[in-house]
Amino acid sequence: MRRLLVLPTSRAGWRLLIAFVALVAAGTWPVIGLVNRTTLVMGLPLMVVWSYLVIFACVVVMLIGNHIVERDDHE
């Protein structure tokens, strides 16, 4: 027990971990640098649109996560 780590134990778990990391990457540097422009999209600044895309992507990933957790019957 002494040197072990908690890591995903299934393919779906690893995919979920990668999705979580990708979400955090999407809202931070260097990705945020790519949308750092004065452009407007649908009347809103690109940074604002991107921020809300990341925010709603979090909901989508957690919905998928709920499906996996409930399908596999584990926490």
Binding site: W29, R37, T38, M42, G43, L44, P45, L46
Partner: peptide, 29 residues
């Protein structure tokens, strides 16, 4: 529509629409 607000900001104060922001203190890091 919020567009009217941001078009005016884009035309006159573009620095408010990007980092590091108008104060210059919100760097990427």
């Amino acid at each position: 529509s919020f567009a009217g607000v941001f078009e005016r900001i884009q035309a006159d104060h573009g620095e408010f629409l990007t980092l590091p922001g108008a104060g210059g203190d919100m760097s990427f890091s």
